[in-house]
């Protein structure tokens, strides 16, 4: 064998070896690493062989193609025109039937599209209200209810309306900011956890600055200033949930959010 043939032979041997190793790796329990690398070796061997084949073995010839003529000749174009439009105009022009045909096809197409409507109901009330109501207690993910004595100052909890744990629209971040900060109930303040920019959970609480930050696009909201936007792409404040400490010590909502939660949309106004 000449030297170049030996190189190609080695590449093909690697391709065979890789394929055998892959079967062995698969049969012995399937390690992602050995399966992948052996198959890569096999393909790399085939690649090397094909490269050698292309550049050393096959003749280095050049072929020349003439480009086809287009546009087509005038007579072909005229014939096409005659067959499709101008030849038909005398027959169909200004006939009511022609217009009716187009109209019928249009309405037929519309009829085929309309069932898309089944994919989703109008959002309606669900887009404007959450499940918070006056008097509802705050329930954690594990089902327990929050008492005013539960959280330390600067602690945060994710809470849901009583009986609606896991309702994504109603998720609320409850923060004990401490007494004497803004108007709050027993040192607590509660905001919608759905970012008003693109809907991610506003999950990062910066204790020192008393700010909530969204990890998705870094909108920052001022907790002690009614959830106002401090920085980032959000265009409106986090809605604040009206809350009170009940006579039994449980934190309760005094109503739903005063405005729709989450990102903006056309009808939100």
């Amino acid at each position: 064998m000449i030297a170049k043939d030996r190189v190609i032979a080695a590449a093909l041997a690697a391709a065979m070896l890789g394929a055998v190793l892959f079967i062995a790796a698969y049969a012995t329990g399937g390690s992602r690493l050995y399966e992948g690398l052996s198959l890569a070796l096999s393909a790399a061997g085939l690649c090397g062989a094909a490269v050698g084949w292309a550049f050393w073995i096959l003749p280095d010839e050049q072929v020349e193609d003439e480009r086809d003529d287009y546009p087509s000749g005038a007579s072909d174009r005229a014939a096409e025109d005659l067959e499709t439009t101008s030849g038909l105009i005398d027959v169909t022009r200004k006939r009511l039937l022609t217009r009716m045909l187009y109209t019928a096809l249009g309405i037929f197409g519309l009829a085929l599209i309309v069932p898309i409507r089944s994919l989703g109901p109008a959002l309606g009330d669900a887009a404007f209200h959450t499940k918070w109501r006056k008097g509802l207690r705050m329930q954690r993910e594990n089902g327990s209810f929050v008492k005013a004595s539960d959280l330390n100052v600067d602690s945060v909890a994710t809470v849901f309306p009583e009986g609606a744990v896991g309702d994504a629209q109603s998720q609320t971040v409850l923060i004990r900011v401490g007494d004497g900060v803004a108007a709050n109930a027993g040192g607590y303040i509660a905001y919608s956890k759905v970012c008003t920019h693109a809907g991610c959970p506003v999950a990062l609480y910066r204790t020192a600055a008393k700010q909530l930050m969204c990890p998705c696009h870094q909108s920052i909201f001022d907790v002690v200033n009614d959830g106002a936007v401090v920085a980032g792409p959000a265009d409106h404040a986090l809605p604040r949930l009206p809350i009170e400490v009940g006579s039994d010590g449980y934190l309760r909502a005094t109503g739903d959010y005063p405005e729709p939660v989450g990102p903006g949309f056309w009808e939100r106004g």
Binding site: L119, G120, A122, L123, Q169
Partner: peptide, 12 residues
């Protein structure tokens, strides 16, 4: 927008 998002998500 509200309608299109509902078509994808089947509601909220």
């Amino acid at each position: 927008g509200a309608w299109a998002s509902s078509l994808l998500a089947g509601g909220v």
